[in-house]
Simulated scan of single mutants.
Amino acid sequence: MESTEVVRQYWSSVWSRDWHAVGLTLAEDVEVFWPVTREIIRGRENMVAVNREHPNGWSIDVLNVYDAGDVVVSEVQVPQEDVGIFRVVSFWTVAGGVITSGREYWTRYGGEEGRDWRLKYASVGDLAP
């Protein structure tokens, strides 16, 4: 399976809450870093558990998956009831048909105001993914 398909399968399995299938996309010793919160998730069991234990009320929309050579980049939107919409940019390393490591940037979509000094250069809006 191509690396981009492994990443697409990962997100599809998370969305369908098929925890066994999620585990099949991850190396046993996978390591995923979330720089925004400085959390490091080590091991397949922990990565599956983080996804499984997340409070319900969310869905996943895969916006883009890019083959960047040694890395696969995915951009995902995660609407969650009573919280808002998260955007996630992930950098995945895939080897041997499984995800071996990742770095994910989770942020709330529109959750931060632009800086005043940029108002004359930028507008606020949405672009199609």
Rank of each mutant, 00 (worst) to 15 (best):
R115V: 15
L119V: 14
E113W: 11
V76N: 03
W92R: 05
Y105W: 13
I85C: 06
A68M: 05
Y66K: 13
E31N: 06
V78T: 01
R38F: 00
E81D: 08
V50Q: 14
F33Q: 00
G111H: 10
E28P: 12
M47D: 13
A27D: 10
R87T: 05
N51V: 11
I40K: 11
I41E: 05
T25S: 08
F86Y: 10
I40A: 07
T93D: 03
I60L: 15
R118W: 15
Y66H: 13
I85H: 08
V124W: 02
Q77N: 04
R118N: 08
I41D: 07
G69P: 01
V83G: 06
E81V: 04
H54D: 11
E53A: 12
E104V: 04
G102T: 03
G43I: 07
V65F: 06
I60Q: 03
E113T: 13
V62P: 09
T100F: 06
W117D: 07
Y109K: 12
D67F: 01
G96F: 11
A122W: 12
G57I: 09
E104D: 15
V76E: 02
T107P: 07
L119D: 09
V22G: 02
H20N: 13
S59F: 11
S90A: 10
V30Y: 01
V94A: 04
G114V: 14
E28T: 14
A49T: 14
V88A: 02
V32E: 00
T93G: 06
G114P: 10
V30E: 05
E53I: 09
A49W: 12
D116R: 15
E28A: 14
R108A: 11
R118Y: 15
E112K: 04
M47Y: 15
E31K: 08
G69L: 01
S59H: 10
W34R: 00
W58N: 04
E39F: 02
A122V: 15
I99V: 07
V98K: 13
G111M: 12
A49P: 08
W19N: 02
P55C: 07
D29Y: 04
S101R: 03
V65T: 12
L24S: 07
R118G: 07
F91Y: 12
S123T: 13
V22S: 00
V48F: 06
D61Y: 13
W106Q: 02
E39N: 04
G110E: 10
A95L: 15
E45W: 11
S123E: 14
T100D: 06
V30L: 03
I60Y: 12
I60M: 07
A27G: 07
E81F: 01
S90M: 06
L63P: 06
E113S: 12
R52E: 14
T100Q: 10
V65Q: 04
A49N: 14
D82R: 10
V78L: 01
P55K: 08
I99E: 04
R42W: 08
V78M: 11
N46Y: 10
W58T: 05
N56C: 08
V30G: 07
T107N: 14
R103V: 13
G111D: 13
G57V: 08
S90I: 05
N51K: 07
